[in-house]
Write a protein that binds this DNA or RNA. Structure first.
Lengths: 170, 170
DNA sequence: CTCCATTGGTCTGATGATCGAACCAGTGCA
DNA sequence: TGCACTGGTTCGATCATCAGACCAATGGAG
């Protein structure tokens, strides 16, 4: 167990979650994975994270069963079924941040593909259900700031696209 | 801005959230606050956190508008309206941890007061709505391990009680 | 009013985590 | 055969966290 993440002796499922995803950068890595990022250099370019830490985090996520590492040469990291279950939590935390920082001007908008827009509680406004991540499309919203980053990964992420679909950079 | 929490240049609401609640211990402090913990020594007893870090975190949470600090002598920390909006995210993350570690044997069970049990997506199974934290009652579930901790705060938290209601320790 | 335990902290030195930068081996295209 | 790129690892410096000592203010008992 990584040293900074030990919440032993807490009889609490939240502590159990945080031992896996509570370290600095981990949730942002997973968010990027939902958005389609799969390669080491793409994570690195988009997150401005030190390579050493990224390497450690990816290794831990694979060991914890949240990511798979495929390909001998230049590996691709993809979310496991178990990691997909994190989507509601990730979405809720993101929506809280939207409401807090730029209320009324979301940075990103989410759509239930072939159905309707998603409300900030994660429900599709048309069908009322909770779309699985694979059925969700992201696109920039009115609060997006395209001047903030211009690395190729950020540019690619600004194209409307489905979650989980591997990102085509450049 | 605290040094370890700077995710500047991320045009992402999740990063904005994590700058506020992403540091070690912060989410556990907020969870305890939802459970009714209000006093410095109670947080400390329940979390086994160093006083210095607890002090820093509480101060930051007050500065960020998630907690209020009331009382001159022995202060009480209470969640603000803004912090209440974190409940869905906190709940979702906790439920993910439940499913991951002890599927089928949840550590805690949640009830919509006067209505019905809550499902793991946060909906009340009877009325179908999302109860606000003030209308939720917590109690230990079949996966709870009462031998893990026996400090007075943990004992008090094992009594069924509503969220947000100030905890009576001893 | 005087003790004195409790509360809510602060301070300190040791240890652990993160950082940017340098380095390096394997891949893959020209 | 070269050479750029990818996916790392290693390094020293800096920052965060830890346990434990310390301390001032509160508040109840006598």
């Amino acid at each position: 167990m990584p040293l900074g993440t030990d919440y032993a002796r807490q009889d609490c499922s939240l502590a159990r979650s945080l031992e896996v995803v509570g370290e600095r950068w981990t949730l942002l890595i997973l968010r990027d994975a939902f958005f389609g990022v799969r390669r080491f250099s793409d994570f690195q370019a988009h997150l401005d994270i030190s390579r050493a830490v990224l390497s450690t985090r990816l290794e831990a996520l694979v060991a914890d069963g949240l990511l798979t590492r495929a390909g001998d040469g230049h590996p691709e990291y993809a979310l496991t079924e178990e990691a997909l279950g994190l989507w509601p939590a990730l979405f809720a935390l993101g929506q809280w941040g939207e409401r807090r920082t730029t209320p009324g001007r979301p940075r990103r908008l989410y759509r239930h593909v072939g159905c309707g827009e998603m409300a900030s509680d994660g429900r599709c406004e048309t069908c009322g259900g909770f779309p699985a991540p694979a059925d969700v499309e992201v696109r920039p919203g009115p609060g997006a700031d395209p001047t903030l980053r211009d690395d190729p990964v950020s540019v690619a992420l600004r194209e409307p696209h489905r979650l989980l679909e591997p990102l085509l950079v450049r």
